[in-house]
Design a protein around this nucleic acid. Structure first.
Length: 752
DNA sequence: TCGTCTGGCACTTTTGAATGGC
DNA sequence: AGCCATTCAAAAGTGCCAGACG
């Protein structure tokens, strides 16, 4: 089982959230500085502070927030890699991602502060092997590793800050070292992952956990490797990565700054990314199908707003903490015991937040993912020629590309609600629905009129209103994986692409996802046969039916409920135990949650099941569920209706009772330093495998993962200066860190 | 034997300190 | 003394390769 022994790093102070912050500049050699721990606060933290704010009795309808839109600026580059089958090197010391995630945010409230998180979740429950020029699933995935979240160094920062520059997560590193103590994101080699970005409001020091938006860019899926398998990928990396310049035959120098976490936007579009892409692409073969050309820059995924959670921590507390955090807070820092408490509280809050986030992630990210992935293979839309997959993009400057580019598809936000924890003060229920805008239309998608595409970058883009959805569903295995490279059978026209949110919701129910996987198909042999051919090899028009017919071997297992929280099948739904979480915390934001329909929509069962997570965790209650009110759970679990088909209109779906957010006055300007933080949180581990039926608990491929209850442990290192700490999933029995560090204590997790 | 992983290597970029000039 | 620009060395990132491991 997972335990501290197994993951020593988990117990390390640095791992903690607070520790996650470090100042890049200050640290020599880019070594993360782990400030002193701030555990003391925890000890000092008065119980009352720990207690979550009371849940508002009545959800207040919250005005729809501005739609938050996120664009993947270097989507073009990602697309290039995706078309070949993106591979990411992981090393023991940690390896940066390339391409990195370069994002542009819009729709944020300039005055509010937001935290940006990056997490990487497995796409399916398979292990891959590069064979015959493609990636094939060759077996079950390995036991899931501690989940870590990378918090953007600039976090928290104002909406104006985020929107004024290109946001890059290049600092995030991937490692295969399960004992990693550097806070890197731990992944298994030869597994397929999907990065996700979460935007969380931090309205004020006292109240964090406002609306949450999660974004998934299907083209950013990748397979982890310790050495590149596909020469094409190597070529792309060498051509596009400045650090690999030495390997270029032509010595082409790419103009890009790999190190900028955020790039100030002097222009509407980040030139650097564009230039980079252009340069990188220059050497690349042209895309076969221009008609399907999509404009990464313009494309944007729209997230769904996650229920807001508020924690009313208390100003004094928050102020002190924030100051300590070195996050410049307007309120100034008070060096008082309160600060310590604040830290602890924050950590606690983070745990909770992530729990809720997890849900959010499910809602937003999954849907998107589904849509996306599905779009490739099973996209309902007509167009089709999906040349997308393996075709290289010829025109580096796709922006300039005269050819019709596919307008970004806006996916209806699956779930947008901001259930606010009712703080003592006001609670405004806010449901927000945002649509997902898929930056990259299904790969092969046909050209959609540009006009249709709202440029994500432009704040003015009206896209917010439109919920365009791509009816595609993601399939974890074989054909479904197509999301990645797979050539979509059809290209979407912008108009066509625009699908009502409702349709989006319903789509999940479509054949692919909805269809239950038969156990018979699960045989290992089947797996190999059904092997998903990573990128190119996918059949032009993957037939959903076949996919269903040849589910990944693991699928059976995958059958587990999509949502961790929705594990009712396991019977866990109601039984969640969150030792560390106060009861009311659990109920926090969701008390008002509207009935299932919305939830179901948000979390289509089929679409979310992640084999690894879901399967193994029978009883498991993801921490993500932590914040979920019982009602929510019930809805989810009880709502088999979750099937998209049954789902009500998306708009309706966003029925979460809004949690009220306190308006925090001012966050100080972003801290000068670049703190990085990695969190372990179960909640953020949604399952990307849509195809799995939620209703039936899958047979366990792996020993079931027990639940991951959140547990706060005291950490001797208290560093008031650091607001956040890494949260680790720890075995429930997890030994409290000797030093008493706070950790996410995940309930027992079997070690394999 | 095969597949995978690891560490070292050469190369490049980035960063910060040191230096010099104004 | 302060500011700015330039230079240099160290650190870090990159892919390649040979060897080790299971």
């Amino acid at each position: 089982m997972l335990s501290v022994e197994m993951y020593p790093s988990l117990a390390l102070g640095p791992q903690r959230i607070g520790d996650c912050f470090y100042r890049e500049r200050e640290a020599p050699a880019h070594m993360p500085l782990y400030p002193p721990t701030c555990d003391v606060a925890a000890k000092a933290l008065p119980p009352r502070l720990l207690a979550p704010p009371p849940v508002p009795n009545e959800p207040v309808t919250k005005t729809q927030k501005d739609e938050v839109k996120m664009d993947l600026e270097n989507a073009f580059l990602w697309k290039q890699f995706s078309s070949v089958g993106t591979e990411m090197i992981i090393t023991k010391k940690g390896r940066r991602m390339f391409p990195g995630l370069r994002l542009k945010l819009s729709g944020l409230n300039p005055s509010l502060r937001y935290i940006l998180l990056l997490d990487i979740v497995p796409v399916d429950n398979s292990r891959y092997r590069f064979q015959g020029g493609g990636w094939q699933a060759v077996g079950g995935a390995e036991a899931r590793l501690p989940d870590r979240v990378f918090i953007h160094p600039d976090s928290p920062a104002t909406g104006a800050h985020w929107q004024s520059r290109t946001i890059s997560f290049h600092f995030a590193k991937l490692t295969n070292n399960t004992l990693d103590s550097q806070g890197h994101i731990i992944l298994h080699s030869l597994h397929r992952y999907q990065p996700r970005v979460h935007v969380i409001e931090a309205r004020d020091v006292l109240r964090w956990g406002g609306g949450q938006h999660s974004f998934v860019f299907p083209e950013t899926q990748f397979i982890t490797v310790t050495a590149y398998q596909n020469n094409k990928i190597t070529e792309l990396k060498i051509n596009a990565n400045p650090f690999a310049k030495g390997f270029r035959e032509d010595g082409m120098n790419m103009n890009c700054d790999p190190c900028d976490s955020t790039e100030l936007l002097t222009q509407p579009t980040s030139t650097s990314s564009t230039d980079l892409q252009a340069l990188a692409l220059a050497s690349l073969p042209p895309l076969p199908d221009p008609s399907c050309g999509y404009r990464p820059q313009e494309a944007s995924y729209r997230d769904t707003l996650v229920p807001e959670q508020q924690l009313d921590l208390g100003q004094a507390f928050m102020a002190s903490q924030m100051s300590d955090i070195s996050i410049s807070m307007a309120n100034g820092m008070q060096d008082t015991p309160g600060s310590e408490v604040a830290n602890s509280i924050i950590e606690r809050w983070v745990c909770v937040m992530f729990d809720t986030m997890g849900e959010a992630a499910y809602t937003s990210s999954f849907p998107a993912a589904q849509a996306n992935s599905s779009s490739f293979p099973s996209a309902p839309l007509p167009q089709s020629s999906s040349s997308f997959p393996s075709l290289p993009i010829s025109d580096p400057s796709d922006t300039s590309d005269p050819q019709p580019s596919i307008s970004p598809i806006d996916y209806p936000s699956i779930l947008s609600s901001s259930p606010t924890l009712s703080s003592s003060t006001t609670t405004t229920p806010s449901l927000q629905q945002t649509s997902f805008t898929f930056p990259t239309p299904p790969p092969s998608n046909s050209s959609s009129p540009q006009s249709l595409l709202p440029s994500s970058s432009s704040s003015s883009s009206p896209s917010a209103n439109t919920y365009h959805t791509i009816p595609e569903t993601i399939r974890p295995h074989a054909t479904t994986d197509a999301s990645f490279p797979a050539p979509p059978s059809a290209c979407q026209t912008g108009l066509q692409d625009q699908i009502s949110a409702h349709s989006l919701l319903t789509q999940p129910s479509q054949p692919l996802q909805g269809q239950p996987v038969t156990s018979g198909n699960n045989s290992p042999s089947d797996q190999s046969s059904a092997a998903f051919i990573y990128p190119n090899i996918l059949p032009p028009n993957p037939d959903p039916a076949p996919a269903a017919a040849h589910p990944h071997p693991n699928q059976n297992q995958l059958l587990a409920p999509n949502l961790p929280c929705s594990l009712p099948t396991h019977g866990a739904a109601t039984s969640f135990a969150f030792p560390s979480v106060p009861p009311h915390m659990q109920n926090l934001s969701f008390s008002n949650v509207s009935p299932t329909p919305s939830l179901a929509a948000a979390f289509p069962p089929s679409s979310f099941t992640h084999p690894s997570s879901s399967l193994p965790h029978p009883p498991f209650q993801p921490s993500s569920c932590l914040a979920v009110p019982s009602s929510f759970q019930q809805s989810v679990s009880s709502t088999p209706t979750a099937h998209p088909q049954n789902l009500p209109n998306p708009s309706a779906s966003s029925s979460y009772p809004p949690v009220e957010l306190g308006g925090i006055p001012q966050f100080n300007p972003p801290a000068p330093y670049r703190p990085e933080m990695v969190l372990h949180h179960p909640s953020l581990l949604p399952q990307l495998d849509p195809s799995l039926p939620s209703s039936t608990p899958p047979p366990a491929l792996y020993p079931a993962f027990p639940s991951y209850p959140l547990r706060l442990c005291q950490d001797p290192h208290s560093s008031l200066s650091i607001p956040f700490r890494h949260l680790y999933r720890q075995h429930q029995h997890g030994h409290a860190h000797p030093q008493g560090s706070y950790m996410m204590d995940m309930s027992t997790r079997p070690m394999f």
